[in-house]
Simulated scan of single mutants.
Amino acid sequence: MPAHNLAERQILKAQADGVFDRLEGAGKPLPERPPEDAVGIAMRIMAQAGVVPREFELKKEVDAQRARLAAITDPAARKQAMAVLTNLQLRYDIEREARRRFYR
């Protein structure tokens, strides 16, 4: 028996048993929500699970490094901070491009 027939039978059995009648919002229309694309759905699911993509963590690190760089006046220290910023920015761009390619 195909899986979709088995699933359909389970749903029909649950309906007959009244399982769906006890759900919150039973008999009410579904709330209006704007349509989401695959990326939006994936991001929402990850946010609900408490998972932060590496891309977002890197973006925070890039912003923090830029703030540190703005406060540095010593040329040698500034050069070193710029190297760190360049490395972080490169890693961030790689993560962002990987996400874009994955969701195409």
Rank of each mutant, 00 (worst) to 15 (best):
D63A: 02
A26L: 12
R78H: 01
A64T: 04
F20R: 15
L85A: 02
Q65N: 02
A81T: 03
L69H: 01
R54K: 08
L69P: 02
L90H: 12
R33Q: 09
P31M: 09
R54E: 09
V51G: 02
M82Q: 11
P35E: 10
R68V: 12
M82F: 06
R22K: 14
Y92M: 00
P29A: 07
L85E: 05
E24S: 10
G27W: 08
L85K: 03
D74K: 08
A64D: 04
E55M: 07
P34E: 13
P29K: 08
I45P: 01
Q48M: 14
K60H: 13
R96K: 15
A83N: 01
M82N: 07
L58W: 05
E57W: 00
V62H: 00
T86P: 02
A42W: 11
G50R: 09
P53L: 06
A49F: 03
R66M: 03
Y92I: 01
Q89F: 15
P29H: 03
Y92E: 00
V39Q: 14
I45D: 12
E95M: 07
E36T: 05
P75I: 00
K28R: 13
E24P: 11
E57G: 10
F20G: 15
A83Y: 06
P29T: 09
L23S: 15
R44D: 14
R66I: 00
Q65S: 00
P31D: 08
R68C: 11
D63E: 09
P34W: 07
V62N: 02
A70W: 05
L90E: 10
D93V: 01
P75L: 00
K28P: 06
G27K: 10
Y92S: 00
A76M: 09
T86D: 06
A76Q: 13
A26K: 14
L58T: 06
Q48T: 08
Q48A: 12
G50F: 05
K79T: 07
D37M: 07
G40F: 08
Q80E: 14
A76T: 13
Q80Y: 10
R22P: 05
A26F: 14
R33T: 10
R44A: 14
V39K: 14
R54L: 01
V84E: 12
F56V: 04
A26V: 13
R54H: 05
L90I: 03
F56A: 04
L90R: 12
D37L: 04
T86S: 08
A83P: 03
V84T: 12
V39E: 13
E32M: 15
L88V: 07
Q48I: 11
E55V: 10
F56S: 02
E57I: 07
L69G: 01
D37K: 10
D93P: 04
L88K: 07
A77N: 15
M43F: 10
I72N: 05
D74R: 06
G50P: 06
P35D: 04
A70Y: 03
A26N: 13
A38P: 07
V52W: 13
R91T: 04
A83L: 09
E95Y: 03
D63G: 00
